[in-house]
Design a protein around this nucleic acid. Structure first.
Lengths: 297, 297
DNA sequence: GCAAATGCATAGCTAAAACCTATGCATTTA
DNA sequence: TAAATGCATAGGTTTTAGCTATGCATTTGC
């Protein structure tokens, strides 16, 4: 089977982007006749007209649109092949852009970064803290190489690796009733004022699902913007809450007038993982970083 | 960014397949020096050694293996682009290979094929009847262009389109108790001998899940090899069963000494759909055929 | 242990292709 | 109606993809 050239596919995409042969030629750093001839050749090869020549520029036929969509994927996959191969020569060197959600980043990264720096001194790590949804978007847009998030998170084109579990503990004001009951189960929370993070944090959703509460709670809904704030609100007597062990170990409650208690039900918590774009050239490195984070957990 | 040529990627894959420069060159219809030079150039471009030159042939480095895997996808995607564009010029002409599961094919296809022939006289339809799993494998292996199956069926790399619902009815010997009860619910089946198709038919699994039975049933398990056989077994008094409305409408019970009854529970049944390989060049045509089948449902 | 065979690399050449400049033709704008 | 815009065509130049011939290292056969 005879295939078109990647260059020809680039030309085709350029026409889709620029809407004209001459501008497309310019963007590809060739002359307009060169690009015209190339497109003509592809059309001959495929036996279909791809571009509609109009008096004022050019537009794509239906077949052309479909071809461009495929071509863009092919070109970006090829670019990925190149990057991946180049990385293979020098793994975990240069820069790596890692994202993390706000309920993980401040508590896990301090430990991790130390280990990472030791294992790979040449690595420049750029960090970005944001909510899961935006991190995923950034992975797709190639603005990030990997992200630490809570799993499972279903997102087409994104793959992930599980790193470990992060249990939830109850946090309540000192001498709260729940500290004295014999067994502590998630159902014990249904009568309490459970404080939550503001909307968009996945930890909020996890807490809601543990308590089996609807996502829209009735009444005055008090929310916190970060885990330290949440702890202060609990200390202030506004209610109880759930804290991930990761944050507790990092000392988020130290100094606050609160008590902690584990649940008796087995494993109430979240799973932490690292995610990256499917086919990312830095997949192997993301997994390496995952391993290091796993050891730090 | 500078990209390797598709031809160069072909060469690299050929080395992976053949395990030697000279055999790879032969399979690509070029001379060995040509291929050697091309590989060398790619290695220069990527800055990594991809092929290990050994005294007795050649093997791939780790980076080479990774590159080959990506290259294969790129090449097949490009081949898909070509096929898709060519099809776009003459949709639903030539040959189309359609699969269908045995509990759909004999009942749905007679109606469908007539409509299809009318709408697209140039189309040569090759049919294959098999169980879902094998159909999916055939889609992946490019042996089929699309397949009619029962949804949902989770298979990575396979996408599908829903075509409609196919309700189940109870089929029992004439004057069976269940025909006289006031309301008929799926739970009424738990005390009955429910006859099933042999293992591997998805309809068997649907029936089991409707009756909330474990997939391994205790006792003498009587199974049928096809829906007509199943009807005869019911008529013979061996038990009751479920039949999809599709088969009933096609007359699978005509002449048999059985009675039919719908369930009162809303929608006990299966969903019928058409599936194809993600990125298949004949995706558009599969959807067209799906539309025609939907109208026939 | 030496000749033959196998297998990749190198050198030098040729022919195809990719790309260029110059120009033509149709349509739109001033 | 002239100028401008935009794609196609013609003809020439450079690049490169591919060839043949050959070299060199390793393995195999006698």
């Amino acid at each position: 089977m005879h295939l078109p050239t990647l260059r020809q596919l680039e030309f085709l995409c350029a026409i889709a982007d620029q809407g004209s042969f001459s501008r497309a030629a310019e963007s590809c750093h060739v002359t307009q006749p060169t690009l015209s001839a190339a497109i003509k050749e592809v059309e001959g090869l495929l036996g279909v007209q791809l571009v509609e020549r109009e008096s004022r520029g050019a537009s794509l036929t239906q077949a052309g649109e479909a071809a461009v969509e495929r071509a863009r994927n092919i070109l970006s996959d090829t670019a990925d092949l190149v990057s991946a191969a180049r990385q293979a020569g020098a793994p975990l060197s240069g820069s790596f852009r890692l994202g993390a959600i706000p309920t993980i980043a401040p508590f896990l990264l301090p430990r991790t970064l130390k280990a990472l720096r030791k294992a790979h001194p040449g690595l420049k790590l750029y960090l970005r803290e944001d909510q899961t949804e935006r991190l995923i978007d950034a992975l797709r847009a190639r603005k990030l190489d990997a992200a630490l998030i809570a799993l499972p998170w279903d997102a087409p084109g994104i793959v992930s690796m599980e790193l470990g579990d992060d249990e939830f503990m109850l946090v309540a004001p000192t001498d709260h009733d729940l500290m004295h009951s014999k067994e502590l189960n998630s159902s014990d929370l249904s009568d309490e004022d459970v404080l939550l993070l503001e909307d968009g944090h996945c930890l909020r959703d996890h807490a809601l699902s543990v308590c089996r509460l609807p996502s829209k709670r009735s009444g005055a809904d008090v929310t916190a913007t970060s885990l330290p704030t949440l702890v202060h609100m609990v200390a202030g007597g506004l209610g109880v809450s759930l804290l991930p062990k990761l944050a507790i170990d990092a000392g988020v409650t130290s100094g606050a007038d609160v008590e902690l208690r584990p649940f008796n039900t087995p494993m109430i918590g979240r799973r932490i993982g690292i995610a990256w774009r499917q086919g990312s050239p830095r997949e192997a490195e993301a997994q390496m970083i995952g391993e290091i984070v796993r050891n730090a957990l």
